[in-house]
């Protein structure tokens, strides 16, 4: 079954690439087999599929997208795709029970040595602009200093399939991978989150 799951994964990636002609721009780092957390701007449902698809297969199988449990657990097909094809890490959005750690599934995956794909805005941007980051990224950077935090700017995805659209328009998407970021000693939460967001904005080409 594992072979079939990977085949489905390839199929989905090919479809997404055919549609978007996506290509990766490894600017600040190379695709290396290190434990990483790729954090990117979030504009469409295609986002993590494309980012995941841009990684070489060997890295891809060790990299798991973080996705919202409410959306992905809603139907049998979605459950199959997120669990078996992407081996996604599901989080409950919009606050769970008081005191529960929303990041627990992510910690589990990082502790097991997996890499993650993470969208620190928490939800898809309504207009394509990069929103303020939620605090999750800071907590993970604080607790897992050995992990490389790689900013990935995904261009044009809001135009391809913005929030509320059902059919994608085929446009070329560029995924720019920036220089890995680490939490500085004594760096406060807001400062780190602002710096991380700026790292994404800095990857925008000057136009």
């Amino acid at each position: 079954m594992r072979i079939f799951d990977r085949f489905v994964g390839r199929l989905l990636i090919s479809a997404a690439r055919l549609l978007t002609g996506a290509y990766a721009n490894w600017l600040g780092c190379k695709p290396e087999p290190r434990q990483r957390l790729y954090f990117a701007n979030h504009a469409s449902h295609l986002d993590f599929l494309l980012l995941w698809g841009m990684l070489p297969p060997a890295l891809r199988h060790k990299t798991r997208p973080v996705a919202g449990a409410d959306y992905w657990n809603a139907s049998a097909l979605r459950r199959y795709v997120i669990h078996r094809v992407f081996r996604g890490v599901l989080v409950t959005r919009g606050g769970g029970a008081a005191g529960s750690d929303l990041l627990a599934p992510l910690r589990e995956a990082l502790a097991a040595g997996d890499s993650l794909i993470f969208f620190p805005e928490g939800t898809r941007s309504p207009d394509g602009e990069i929103q303020a980051f939620k605090s999750g990224l800071y907590h993970l950077a604080h607790d897992y200093p050995q992990v490389e935090f790689v900013p990935v700017l995904m261009e044009n995805l809001s135009r391809v399939m913005g929030k509320g659209e059902f059919l994608p328009v085929p446009l070329i998407c560029v995924l720019s991978f920036g220089t890995p970021l680490a939490l500085a000693p004594d760096e406060a939460k807001p400062a780190f989150l602002t710096r991380a967001r700026q790292a994404l904005i800095d990857l925008l080409p000057a136009r």
Binding site: G21, S158, R159, G162, E165, V169, P170, I172
Partner: peptide
């Protein structure tokens, strides 16, 4: 057309028009 439209300044309101162009 994919390359051309990528470089234009379309907005969200153009989604339907662009879908019509391609499909």
């Amino acid at each position: 057309l994919r390359e051309f439209i990528t470089l234009t300044h379309t907005r969200r309101g153009d989604h339907l028009a662009l879908l019509a162009c391609f499909f």
